[in-house]
């Protein structure tokens, strides 16, 4: 079975209600929070004047999982990460490795990230979010050398 991932294909429709992030915090993390969630909404202000999501891109391979020294963040099949909270030592390496700032570290250093469960999707009143099949993994061409400065 292909494991779907969360995507944000229609953010132009977003009204900034925060229903998605509040739902994730509530249902996935049992929190009332804007931050402790796998998706967070920001207002863009300025020229584009709308809202943008800060979602996990469901990387495969996932830099955050590669950076995690304890295996608390592991690679999820289909992209993104599987999190074992008990193993986390709050080093913050995952958040530092994420290219899109999708991991929130709470004041105690505990990471909060999307686990691709799809529960937020039905709370979006404008259908901005969708669970989709992941794109083919981009493992690269093993015959070529790594680009290094």
């Amino acid at each position: 079975m292909v494991m779907k991932i969360l995507s944000t294909p229609r953010m132009e429709r977003c009204i900034g209600c925060h229903s998605c992030s509040l739902a994730c915090a509530r249902l996935v993390y049992q929190q009332l929070s804007w931050d402790k969630a796998g998706i967070r909404i920001r207002s863009t202000g300025g020229l584009s004047t709308g809202f943008e999501a800060q979602p996990c891109l469901a990387c495969d391979p996932a830099p955050c999982a590669l950076a995690c020294p304890t295996g608390a963040f592991g690679q999820r099949r289909g992209g993104g990460v599987v999190v074992k909270r008990k193993l986390c030592i709050r080093c913050g390496a995952c958040a530092a490795a994420c290219p899109v700032d999708a991991i929130y570290l709470d004041p105690a250093g505990e990471p909060f990230v999307c686990i691709q469960c799809g529960r937020c999707v039905e709370f979006c009143p404008h259908d901005c979010l969708e669970m989709v099949e992941p794109p083919a993994a981009t493992t690269g061409d093993a015959s070529l050398p790594e680009a290094r400065p």
Partner: peptide
Amino acid sequence: ACAGCPVG
């Protein structure tokens, strides 16, 4: 929308 309101 106001934060916390899906009506918009």
